[in-house]
Design a protein around this nucleic acid. Structure first.
Length: 295
DNA sequence: AGCCAGGCTTGGT
DNA sequence: ACCAAGCATGGC
């Protein structure tokens, strides 16, 4: 058992873990339970910062600081946002919302599975995938009450790592379809195989510039522009990546072009030019704002 | 170009 | 209680 207080100001843990970036976090009595790499961890927001607790001893907590991005200077990022009414409203509505830094493979796999799914369903698919193909983690088995487990569609209270590309590549399409991912199964399998056999290099993406990295990711089956942008933003933190889904399209239309109907092409161009060097960060604020405030 | 691919949620009856 | 529509993206 190990604990730490990560002293951080202006960090909205709930908004961050519940804004569609990640799919494996569950809240129970103000405590967020989740898995980062091979660590099961519980997080709680306090006035002093974020209290983290693991069941295994920790030599250092950099894996958690890196995931939560607690060292990021949020003020400096917010300063780069355009100074307009919609942006001010979005920032005011979810102060302290952060972008996480996820493992690229977990992020890629999760967003391949996200296509034409709603967040609740993505959570269910990812939970099943981890349960059936991930490694069991040492962790308290009493974190989820039976009723929570039932509600979340998780039958056991054991926690699991996200399965590696090797583990997925060794599975059959039928195994994966059993996790309710439907037609996304061949895409996930193909990605896992290409990474395992070395024909696709997730690390090489880091060294590319944004347009090249995007093009590269889109060579994978099941990865179009939107999913590539999610992976680039949430996994690699290319902050210029600006995923455009229907929610964001709606947000841009309502907030920035309320009088006339803007074409999809115009909205894309606007998204790519209006929001500055941390456009993806701005996108996350707009996304969360439109999903919680407007409708 | 237009249809199709899970399964869960929502809305109408 | 039940059934249809909506979701939202990429591939063919």
């Amino acid at each position: 058992m190990a604990n730490i207080l990560l002293r951080v100001r202006d960090y909205n843990l709930a908004a961050t873990l519940d804004s569609g970036q990640v799919f494996r976090w569950h809240v129970q009595n103000d405590t967020w339970n989740g898995v980062v790499g091979k660590h099961f961890v519980r997080l709680k927001q306090t006035p002093e910062g974020i209290v983290a607790e693991t069941v295994t001893p920790q030599n250092d907590w950099n894996w958690l600081r890196d995931f939560l991005q607690t060292e990021t200077d949020l003020e400096n990022i917010l300063k780069t946002f355009p100074d307009d009414e919609p942006m001010r409203a979005a920032v005011a509505a979810c102060r302290g919302l952060r972008l996480l830094r996820q493992d690229p493979w977990e992020c890629l796999a999760s967003f391949i599975l996200s296509s034409t799914k709603q967040i609740v369903q993505i959570r269910q698919i990812v939970a099943l995938l981890c349960e059936k193909h991930g490694d069991p983690l040492t962790g308290p088995s009493d974190i989820l009450s039976p009723s929570d487990a039932e509600r979340d569609g998780v039958m056991s209270t054991q926690h699991f790592s996200f399965p590696s590309p090797q583990r997925i590549a060794a599975a059959s399409e039928a195994d994966l379809r059993a996790c309710k991912m439907g037609f996304r199964a061949p895409s996930l399998l193909a990605a896992a195989r290409r990474i395992t056999d070395g024909s696709f290099d997730l690390e090489a993406i880091r060294k590319m510039d944004y347009p090249e990295a995007r093009e590269e990711l889109m060579k994978l089956r099941g990865v179009g522009g939107k999913i590539a942008d999610c992976v680039l933003l949430f996994g690699y933190r290319f902050d210029s990546a600006f995923p455009v889904d229907v929610w964001i399209e709606r947000a841009l239309q309502q907030l920035y072009f309320p009088r006339r109907r803007a074409s999809e092409k115009l909205l894309r161009h606007f998204a790519a030019t209006h929001f500055g060097p941390h456009a993806g960060y701005a996108q996350q604020y707009l996304f969360h704002y439109i999903r919680t405030k407007l409708e």
